[in-house]
Amino acid sequence: MHSRLRNRLGWLEAGLYLGGVALLAVFFQLRADAELQREQGVRAFEASLADKAASHSGWIPDQELWSDKRIRDYEESIQVDAEPPLALMKIARLGIEVPVYNGTDEFNLNRGAGRIKGTAWIDSPGNLGIAGHRDGFFRGLKDIEIGDEIELRTAGGAVNYRVSSFLIVEPDDVSVLGKTAETTLTLVTCYPFYYVGHAPKRFIVKAEARHPSLKF
């Protein structure tokens, strides 16, 4: 009798073991599938933004307020293969839609806006600084108002910001880019918007995140 009981327990133990192995296999397969879908989503997002930023046959930004020089620089920049943007920023009321690249060198700012290095990463909490040319993509900021909505979309989701203030500072005033505990956005461009030559001031827009869908 004891031998029969041991056999039954042995079969039960073996069954539980095999069942556990099967569940682990399913778990890891689901994780692998989810990771594959995430990577495919990231690639698709990057490809779509790259197409927008680098193809005349697709999306072309609203250039009504742009200077002639900025239009020429933009058209030259999109002929060059480059890294895809990090995000797409929209300010619907102002008609601003601009790809955001990593860094603020002239090449990036000719074809979009640029994340200011040393500020928060695109999909992380903190103060994210983004710069753009006053006679190009950021010309529309001249009409910004407190309460305007800004959407920053990445492959991981979107963060919606609401403009809380705007101000004019000296070029060497970097306090506006200081670290914050909250998820904030600081837009920087030269000022005055229609100044001839090198503009002597900087126009700053501050915005705070509301209901972010990104998983930090």
Rank of each mutant, 00 (worst) to 15 (best):
Q40I: 03
V42W: 13
A44W: 14
F45C: 12
A47F: 02
A47H: 08
S48T: 05
L49G: 04
D51E: 05
D51T: 06
K52L: 08
A54R: 09
A54K: 00
S55Y: 07
H56Y: 09
S57T: 03
G58F: 11
G58V: 00
G58T: 06
W59Y: 15
P61A: 09
D62R: 12
Q63A: 13
Q63F: 04
E64Q: 12
L65E: 04
W66N: 05
S67P: 11
S67H: 10
D68A: 15
D68L: 13
K69C: 00
R70P: 03
R70W: 05
R72C: 09
Y74C: 00
Y74A: 01
E75M: 08
E75H: 07
E76S: 14
S77P: 02
S77Y: 09
I78T: 07
I78G: 10
Q79V: 03
V80K: 15
V80A: 04
V80F: 12
D81R: 11
P85H: 07
P85Q: 07
A87I: 01
L88D: 10
L88I: 05
I91C: 02
R93F: 01
G95T: 05
G95P: 01
E97S: 14
V98H: 08
V98Q: 03
V100S: 02
V100D: 00
G103S: 10
E106F: 09
N110G: 03
N110V: 01
N110W: 03
N110R: 12
R111Y: 07
G112N: 06
G112P: 03
G112W: 05
A113I: 04
G114I: 00
K117E: 13
G118W: 08
G118T: 05
G118M: 07
G118K: 10
T119P: 00
A120E: 03
W121S: 13
W121G: 15
I122P: 02
S124T: 14
S124Q: 14
S124N: 15
G126I: 02
G126R: 06
N127H: 03
N127M: 03
L128Y: 10
G129H: 10
G129N: 08
I130Q: 02
A131W: 02
A131N: 02
G132M: 06
H133R: 12
H133M: 15
